[in-house]
Design a protein around this nucleic acid. Sequence first.
DNA 1: AGTTTGAGTGAACGTGTGTTCACTCAGAGT
DNA 2: ACTCTGAGTGAACACACGTTCACTCAAACT
Lengths: 210, 210
Amino acid sequence: MAGAQGEVAETRGERKERTRRAILDAALDLTDGSSLVAISLRQVAKEVGIVPTAFYRHFDSVESLGLALVDESFDSLRGLLREVWLRSPQFGDYIDGSLPVLADHVRAHRAHYAFIARERAAGPARVREAIRHEIELITRELATDIARVPGSNAFSTEHLNLLADLIVSFVVTTAERLIEDPGAESRILAETRTQLRMLMVGALNWQTRR
Amino acid sequence: MAGAQGEVAETRGERKERTRRAILDAALDLTDGSSLVAISLRQVAKEVGIVPTAFYRHFDSVESLGLALVDESFDSLRGLLREVWLRSPQFGDYIDGSLPVLADHVRAHRAHYAFIARERAAGPARVREAIRHEIELITRELATDIARVPGSNAFSTEHLNLLADLIVSFVVTTAERLIEDPGAESRILAETRTQLRMLMVGALNWQTRR
DNA sequence: AGTTTGAGTGAACGTGTGTTCACTCAGAGT
DNA sequence: ACTCTGAGTGAACACACGTTCACTCAAACT
């Protein structure tokens, strides 16, 4: 395979990139319902349709494959955050505006979110560390975003960070639920909406108490 | 090994139970930083000091070993909940009373909590399902416990369940953090304390709005 | 004392594993 | 046109895997 086609015109770089993508996709597919630590280089190679040794032309271990998947998964996630932030400039309709966007993203990039959820807890040490780091960065970004919202200046920096952390944790949990039972999406969203409101009521009353 | 000792007096049942425990402990040990889906029956047997085939006298697969570990891990967790509930009859000091208990339990039963955290996301399908089910039961128990707290009767049943769910999710997240960085225990506890207060301020204001 | 039971043994099976090596042969650079 | 580069090949390695089977031999039961 991989070039056996009589198809014309494929540059060397294009060909390599195509195989690399195929490896990433195969890994996402194979780890679904399992984990990076449980799949083998040979399974991936077989799925892609290349010989095991060819794998090494692209990654030098399953772990480094995992790190590449972390990168592209968080590219997805940052796309989500950008979109959420664009369409909800108001603190008031923040929740109603954001939840459907989250649901859409999880549905569209299911494999990526499932990968993060799984490997965050059970991946190779380096991969877990990379994921933890990325989540930390995103939490900080969220904190500075919230700081720009009018009315949020009553929060101390410390409490702002804790609020952002609380929200991120909760979004991670919600994403996990959407992944594990996609059929219950509307119920999960309705429940999450109420819970986020409970949380926000706390945040709003908190700042007035400061 | 396993009976090679010149030690006297060990009944057949005791011997079997001792080996069974050794298998469970070995599995907890081997899955640490990895996952049930990534360990082999032979690794476990070697760790215990028995021949691979002897494993089948106790469990008929690694998956059923996993289900046994789910059972005993949640026995630990229920012990925690009982203790938390005993020493915090007041809604007010609920948080300050519970957090140190949680931290103690996580420290004392680290392997169990780490097991739940990992396999919840990445274990074999049956194991994930069992964990999800146990968490659901605990959430329901918490909801009925909260319902007995004076002043909580302003919550509708539905919102009571959502609050319980919110708390359980957050406790799971906190336990995960304590596991992944035990050295930061006091910082994590202080932060979690503030976040739980934010959440509780929301809950308290919520019920008065109903 | 004699028999039954069952936890643990050890050899064997077919298959999958990561990694090495020398190789092909088409696209890229001269 | 001629060489170089490097993605993909295929054989081979030493080892680990789950499962089967007939076995031992001490505790438990009669």
